[in-house]
């Protein structure tokens, strides 16, 4: 079994987005809430959150959780109103 074209492209994508210094999933978790609130409010990405943006590019698990969090925030907004 070889890698599929899609898998190879995914590999090329994460290699392209790799940086010398990166944060890990635990650091991402502590700040992803702020990142998600800013994104949903349409704010530009703050300098201090660029590392989160980069981590979400290379980490599919944190990206999946970020997308789930955005859905959750929207649902919570609805219950509050």
């Amino acid at each position: 079994m070889s890698m599929t074209g899609e898998e190879i492209q995914r590999l090329l994508d994460v290699v392209r987005d790799t940086q010398a210094v990166e944060i890990d999933c635990d650091v991402c978790l502590m700040q992803v809430g702020e990142f998600a609130e800013d994104r949903l409010a349409g704010k530009p990405i703050a300098e201090g959150l660029k590392a989160i943006e980069q981590h979400l590019l290379i980490c599919p698990e944190c990206r999946e959780e970020f997308e789930a969090l955005c859905q959750a925030i929207n649902a919570l907004k609805k219950t509050a109103s």
């Binding site: 978790l29 502590m30 700040q31 992803v32 809430g33 702020e34 998600a36 609130e37 698990e61 999946e64 959780e65 789930a68 969090l69 959750a72 925030i73 919570l76």
Partner: peptide, 25 residues
């Protein structure tokens, strides 16, 4: 357990929800 790591930079409920999503997923 993580309360002292909350940096007050988002709504508390948003932060707590992000942890719950991590646990579930």
């Amino acid at each position: 357990q993580a309360l002292n790591q909350f940096q007050n930079r988002s709504r508390f409920v948003t932060w707590a929800t992000s942890i719950a999503i991590r646990v579930a997923m």
